[in-house]
Simulated scan of single mutants.
Amino acid sequence: MRIQVINPMGVDVYNPMVEQAIARATAPDTKVEVRSLMGTGVPATAFLPAHSLMMNQLLTQVETAERDGFDAVVIACAADPGVEDAKELVDIPVTGPMEAAVAAGRAFGHLAVVCPRIESGEGENLPQNANWVRRLIHRYSAESIFAGVISAPSGHPPADEVNRLLAEDPPGLRAAVRAEMEVSATTTALEAAERAFHDLDAEVIFFACTLWSGLLGPIREQVPVRVLDPLITPVLYAEMLARTGSN
């Protein structure tokens, strides 16, 4: 079993984070490869590029993954960019974090989504409200299980520092961004999860940013609901889909 995880960015800064997050999640005979869109003309930004700057390259990479013999593809962004179009291009399963979360939500109960609000820089596409979640819930016909969405503002290093680290110290940028997301996992995101449980009657909560992957332990310890990791959930779902379709 071979799964390609596509990080839809023009840099590979976060690839080691993705690899570490999913390393122990899959079956022993499943091999996962993480690829970014680096070198394809997608601009080098610290966060998700605008769709107009990376969509063609993303879909091309999905087609390449199929030609290279991969059994499934995960597009590693909680907004599921290109997932719907990619399904029409290839015969292997293609999924994203939100689609996988909805599938899990149908099994576990009412689903709440916690999404970040991170300041979006030039050429980036970080949403400043939660309406993108509602649109995806509608796309996946999940209104009957949708408990609601709560935003959890999350910080990031100052823009000048982000640009400097991106150019001079990519591992330092990854560490700095992850540190901010780790803070949110014990403050704003934790508070959002508690609200989802107490006020929205959520039975399962999806954290809709891959940068939270691997940082959700404090929330699992304090909020008595199922917590869906934004990278592990779609990789396991893709693995299941691929095995279901194999002979």
Rank of each mutant, 00 (worst) to 15 (best):
I3F: 00
I3H: 00
Q4R: 15
Q4W: 01
V5I: 14
N7E: 11
G10Q: 04
V13N: 09
N15K: 07
Q20Y: 01
A21H: 01
A21V: 05
I22F: 02
A23L: 03
A27E: 08
K31L: 12
S36E: 06
L37T: 06
G39V: 04
G39E: 08
G41E: 12
V42A: 13
P43K: 13
T45M: 10
L48D: 02
P49T: 05
A50P: 02
L53T: 11
M54Q: 11
M55I: 11
M55L: 14
L58D: 01
L58F: 03
L59E: 03
Q61R: 15
E66H: 06
G69P: 01
D71G: 13
V73E: 02
A78N: 02
A78R: 05
P81V: 07
E84N: 10
K87Q: 12
K87C: 06
L89K: 15
I92R: 06
P93S: 01
P93G: 01
T95Y: 07
V102T: 14
A103R: 13
G105S: 12
G109D: 06
H110L: 13
A112D: 08
C115F: 04
R117Y: 10
R117Q: 13
R117V: 15
E124W: 00
L126R: 09
W132G: 10
R139G: 09
G148D: 03
S151G: 09
S151W: 00
S151L: 10
P153G: 06
P158S: 07
P158L: 03
N163T: 12
L165G: 06
P171M: 05
G172W: 00
L173I: 09
L173E: 04
A176L: 03
V177P: 11
A179R: 07
A179K: 11
V183D: 10
S184I: 05
T187W: 00
T187R: 00
A189E: 03
A189Q: 04
E191N: 13
E191P: 06
A192H: 03
A192V: 11
A193G: 08
E194L: 14
R195H: 07
F197Y: 14
H198I: 14
A202M: 13
A202C: 14
E203W: 07
F206G: 05
F207H: 06
A208G: 07
A208K: 09
C209R: 02
T210R: 02
W212Q: 14
G214K: 07
G214S: 08
P218H: 02
R220E: 15
V223N: 10
V227H: 10
M240N: 09
M240K: 08
A242D: 07
T244G: 05
G245W: 01
N247D: 10
N247E: 08
N247C: 06
